[in-house]
């Protein structure tokens, strides 16, 4: 593995559907944390909800086979099921916690996300969720594959070459990212966004001005959670459903991407997600290369591979110290002690 191929792989991450899925989840988290001040530490839970709802609906109900629906309709139905599941999950989380102080939401969300993961892992549910094995990709990719208008073998160039299926997934995932970004931009320039940002600063003040703070926080939680669920769907389209993909690590990757790009900015989550995956891939490749040269002594390859997370951690620390507002964040906003 030479240096050029490391760069090649890293550059490939820029357009990968996984990056798109993460960008979507990060945009959702940005609505929660960046704009509304909601400490959601369970974004992976929303992704899991979306992913499982989509996959299970497609496998169990399978309207294409049982009802003779066209595959695009089945796909949209499955997406809607994922959204409804995320809305219900957000309501269950929000109803008891949104009246309380922010920290409670953090505790409840991180626990709820783990509850979701352990539930789908349960052996008793293997018939539905696949237990700890998860679900096979081929069982739920039928509809989206049938919808694919691309007939060639590979598309793109250089590091961005992909198969027809992968290209199709990329088109869908990145389209969703663009829609989500436009949605956030439209909302945050509106009076709705002003109320949301006001709540982030001081909810009592906003309440004293006649705004239903609880209702707004719920709307924000549902909206960001829905984006998390869609991210979950996009995340499983290029792979299988693995319950352990939706562990707390995922949530913290999303937080890292958000802080890297800059919270409370429209494009920050996108930039952060791309940079995060490019850097993770690059450092991984670099460490692999150095390991091949024998630099890490007696360490095994997989041990050395873990070093990249040390590097990511260091990078995050440096970021928080030297540029706490993120790459796109407004320095002025953070210069106040609010």
């Amino acid at each position: 593995m030479d240096f050029l191929s490391i760069l090649n792989t890293a550059a490939g991450e820029i357009l990968s559907p996984t990056t798109a899925a993460f960008a979507l989840a990060t945009i959702g988290l940005n609505i929660h944390f960046g704009y509304s001040g909601l400490l959601n530490f369970g974004q992976a839970g929303f992704m899991a909800i979306g992913a499982y709802a989509f996959a299970i609906f497609t496998m169990m109900v399978d309207p294409t086979a049982t009802l003779g629906w066209p595959s695009w309709l089945s796909f949209i139905a499955a997406i809607l099921v994922a959204i409804v599941a995320a809305v219900i999950f957000a309501l269950i989380l929000g109803i008891p916690t949104l009246r309380l102080r922010g920290d409670y939401l953090a505790i409840v969300t991180i626990a709820a996300a783990e509850i979701i993961r352990f539930t789908v892992r349960t052996q008793d549910l293997t018939a539905v969720t696949g237990g700890s094995q998860g679900l096979r990709g081929q069982d739920y990719k039928g509809d989206i594959d049938a919808m694919n208008p691309l007939t060639g073998t590979t598309y793109g160039f250089g590091p961005w070459t992909a198969t027809a299926y992968d290209t199709w997934v990329r088109i869908i995932a990145w389209s969703l990212v663009i829609v989500a970004l436009i949605l956030v931009w439209l909302l945050m320039r509106s009076p709705w966004g002003r109320v949301i940002k006001g709540i982030r600063e001081d909810e009592d003040a906003v309440r004293s001005l006649g705004k239903n703070v609880y209702g707004y926080k719920m709307q924000a939680l549902v909206l960001g959670g829905t984006m998390g669920a869609l991210a979950g769907v996009m995340f499983i389209l290029p792979r299988a459903v693995q319950p352990d993909n939706f562990a707390t690590t995922m949530t913290f990757y999303i937080w890292t991407a958000l802080l890297l790009g800059g919270a409370a900015t429209v494009l920050g989550p996108l930039l952060g997600s791309i940079l995060f995956w490019v850097l993770l891939s690059f450092t991984g490749g670099l460490i692999n290369l150095l390991h091949g040269l024998g630099i890490f002594g007696a360490m095994t390859g997989s041990q050395a591979g873990q070093l990249r997370f040390v590097l990511v951690g260091l990078a995050l620390m440096a970021l928080v110290v030297f540029r706490p507002q993120g790459i796109l964040g407004n320095k002025k906003e953070l210069s106040f002690n609010v």
Binding site: P191, W192, R194, Q219, F336
Partner: peptide, 27 residues
């Protein structure tokens, strides 16, 4: 309770009542 990371004008506009743009879809 001033809303620190909003501008003075945004603080003021938050006070206006019955704003159509404060609904999620109208926004």
């Amino acid at each position: 309770k001033s809303l620190g990371r909003l501008t003075v004008l945004q603080n003021m506009l938050l006070g206006a009542r019955d704003q159509r743009g404060e609904g999620l879809f109208a926004a």
